[in-house]
Design a protein around this nucleic acid. Structure first.
Length: 719
RNA sequence: GGACGGUUAGCUCAGUUGGUUAGAGCGUUACGUUGACAUCGUAGAGGCCACUGGUUCGAGCCCAGUACCGUCCACCA
């Protein structure tokens, strides 16, 4: 053994050895309860970040622990097609070549994305290996592989037949850059310093009314002015017509409960096509809806010739200048408010009137609330239970259609006669590009062959929601599904509790009749030293792969686990990783010393040794047993920090500083308790390596190879 | 506008059901070590535990409030 541990020499080799031995794929042992973890599938857009590194370290440590305890431990890997995100990166790539997706057309563009996917999927999965994750690669899944797609089509058809899926024309979040709708969860609100512009509308027959708005450009699509019916200030105005400045269009002044008398001027402009509240008001008062902003975020011809074609924010500036000139602006008040941004490209989201597919949530939410409320699913740390329940109880319908090309195209066909056909069969045919005898398809109602498929694709999260069972073969009734579902443990970041976790819960209950997992562990968020979120796009992240290169995988894993608290967010500190490297070296050298000093003890009877054991030996062995017990307890409650600290403290201070120092002298001086000293060293070392293995798999396995053991450490028995 | 966290050594964090001198790592100081390891060892310095008030024989820990930081949720223009 070398004088110091070298990760580079060992990690890759050892990982290949494990893979070759097929230790990652558990046997389906009837009667034995499996420990099942499905990996939160990373996007195929880029590479693993610090949160992934932490999350996968946690999962892998648990998997290794359970595997060593003799349980069939399934750690299922996979990747997520991440519709909008992946489409964006491929579009960016095309843009560099001066092309848009429209230049390629849908089929070619999809091909382009598949190429990207193949490259990045391989890269991501390779990174998981670098992290030491002992995933069952034989079951690797992708959210758009064939079987998985069938699961999605089945789910869609199921919801549709049950009446849970419907299509509706209403205000939805629209990203003008990604050119698609977004669900409420995909909009990130951010504080903006802006203004509240007070605009004066003249009233037909004399008088005026002032409204306050943060988005003056929508004024061009106003179809009413609303006041509260109880508001005495405006009582005589209701029923009269106001005149939109510049445009000169007449709009009615109406009374509606929704208007807050305290806010602004007490009078509000109503733009039904561009604001969800105004849309509701319009419904109640049967108002016209005028769209003045289009899908590109540009002003439509309806906005008038001064504005048509302008970007919405340019239009705002132009309009304000004109209002100023015409003395229609009575006040400009600085105002801080929240503005929605696209979670994928950060563009300001525009509420637009569009036709979209929705999932009705009321019924689906009920059992999902109960499952968590009753404790069938446990959140860890517990505080997230409340967060989950609050959201689930106030859930809105879920917009699942997206106007992009990368994803599962909605399995719906429309006939000119007005009939809507949902067909899993046709969708599968189209996907597999078999026959594609679309001409044979007939509308079941009018027999017409003129059918047009819905262009939209499904929200990526619609597919992710099926992950815990679709990965095991659902809708087929497979042995895997039967054996591994429901899964045991889910570990993920808190920002996808709603987007992903909640949706897996109601989907699992709906399709499997059983919750998808028992424990949900929400891992700490990793921040940088300034307390800002680690993000590659913000340039505030540290690349875990660079750390691995610098310090080794074991050091990185150790350092991450060592600095996380119980659900407490962490400010990432590289010192911890450095300490991990030192620790790996310490383990290596303590092992080296031990291995060099075991010779005489081999083959000596237990009885002889027992009689020689000194008090120090007994104390060390007691301490070892205590350490084993403590680690088990900590891992049972997912307290990784303390589990790691326990073995760290025992190994360094108890074993190295005390036990080795003590036995060293006895061995060197050929003391009469020498054999016991060697026995103690050997016993403590072997057990320590086992205890360390879930956290630092490579260095421990590398040392184990020098031991006289039949099985590799990865499948040795837990002490 | 709601909800939830945090505030302990220069830095990153522990601190179990309230109980004698509040812990760790990094950093720092002194000393030591040519046979496991300088990626080391021994010893030390360094804390009005955010602030205010309360409960208690006793509070870092429990209660109330204040301040600052952070996260999430929310259709007041």
């Amino acid at each position: 053994m070398d004088k110091s541990y070298n990760p580079e020499e060992n990690e890759k080799r050892i990982y290949e050895k494990w893979e070759k031995g097929k230790y990652f794929t558990p046997k389906l042992e009837v009667g034995k309860k499996p420990f099942t973890v499905v990996i939160p599938p990373p996007n195929v857009t880029g590479s693993l970040h610090m949160g992934h590194a932490l999350n996968n370290t946690i999962q892998d440590a648990l998997i290794r622990w359970h595997r060593m305890k003799g349980e069939p431990a399934e750690y299922l890997p996979g990747t997520d097609h991440a519709g909008i995100a992946t489409q964006n990166v491929v579009e960016k790539k095309l843009a560099k070549e001066g092309k848009t997706r429209f230049d390629l057309g849908r089929a070619k563009f999809e091909k382009e994305v598949w190429k990207w996917k193949d490259e990045y999927e391989a890269r991501i999965l390779g990174q998981l290996k670098t992290l030491g994750c002992s995933c069952d690669w034989s079951r690797t899944r992708f959210t758009m592989d064939e079987g998985y797609t069938e699961a999605i089509l089945t789910a869609f058809a199921h919801y549709y037949e049950k009446g849970y899926i419907y299509r509706d024309y209403r205000i939805t979040n629209w990203c003008p850059r990604c050119h698609t709708s977004l669900s409420d969860l995909e909009v990130e609100h951010e504080e903006h310093e802006s203004y509240l512009w007070h605009i004066k509308y003249e009233i037909e027959g004399g008088g005026e009314v002032v409204v306050a708005t943060t988005r003056p450009e929508t004024m061009l699509g106003d179809t009413a002015i609303a006041v509260n019916p109880k508001d005495k200030r405006f009582k005589n105005l209701v029923g009269k017509n106001a005149i939109i400045p510049i445009q000169g269009r007449k709009i009615p002044i109406i009374a509606d409960e929704h208007v807050d008398m305290e806010f602004g001027t007490g009078a509000v402009k109503v733009t039904p096509a561009h604001d969800p509240n105004d849309f509701e008001i319009a419904k109640r008062h049967d108002l016209e809806k005028i769209t003045v902003i289009d899908f590109d975020g540009k002003m439509t011809p309806e906005s008038g010739e001064d504005f048509a074609g302008l970007d919405r924010f340019e239009a705002r500036d132009v309009l304000i200048e004109m209002l100023k000139e015409g003395k229609w602006l009575t006040k400009i008040q600085p105002y801080v408010h929240n503005v929605g941004h696209c979670y994928r490209c950060h563009e300001v989201v525009e509420p637009l009137l569009t036709l979209q597919w929705y999932v009705k949530m009321a019924e689906l939410a009920k059992p999902a609330i109960k499952a968590v409320g009753d404790g069938k699913i446990q959140f860890q740390p517990k505080k997230w239970k409340k967060v989950y329940l609050e959201w689930m109880k106030n859930i809105n319908d879920w917009c699942i259609s997206r106007q992009i090309w990368w994803g599962h195209q909605i399995p719906v066909w429309y006939c000119d006669c007005g009939e809507t056909i949902v067909s899993k069969k046709w969708a599968l045919e189209d996907m597999l590009s078999v026959s594609r005898e679309t001409s044979k398809r007939r509308c079941p109602k009018c027999k017409s062959s003129k059918l047009k498929r819905d262009e939209d694709v499904l929200d990526t999260w619609f597919s992710s929601a099926l992950w815990p069972f679709a990965t095991f073969g659902w809708p087929e009734k497979t042995k895997d599904l039967d054996y591994f579902y429901p899964t045991t443990f889910l570990s993920t970041a808190r920002d996808i509790i709603y987007l992903w976790v909640a949706r897996m819960i109601f989907s699992g209950i709906e399709f499997m009749g059983e919750v998808p997992f028992k424990d949900v562990y929400i891992h700490p968020t990793v921040f940088n030293q300034e307390g800002r979120r680690m993000s590659k796009s913000l340039g505030t992240g540290v690349d875990p792969l660079e750390l691995i290169e610098k310090y080794g995988t074991d050091a990185t894993r150790f350092g991450l686990l060592w600095q996380i608290g119980q659900g407490q967010d962490i400010k990432f500190s590289e010192d911890a990783i450095l300490n991990g490297k030192r620790f790996a070296n310490k383990i290596w050298n303590a092992s080296r010393f031990t291995l060099m000093n075991l010779e005489d003890y081999k083959g000596v009877s237990r009885e002889t040794i027992k009689n020689q054991l000194t008090q120090a030996d007994k104390d060390t062995l007691d301490h070892l047993n205590q350490t084993i017990e403590n680690i088990n307890q900590y891992l049972n409650i997912y307290d990784f920090q303390h589990a790691v600290e326990e073995i760290y403290t025992f190994f360094w201070y108890e074993f190295c500083d005390k036990c080795i120092e003590d036995t060293k002298i006895r061995i060197r001086e050929n003391d009469k308790t020498k054999l016991a000293a060697q026995y103690t060293l050997d016993t403590v070392l072997k057990n320590s390596l086992k205890l360390l293995h879930p956290f630092m798999p490579f260095v421990t396995e590398a040392i184990w190879e020098n031991l006289d053991e039949k099985n590799p450490l990865i499948i040795s028995d837990w002490p």
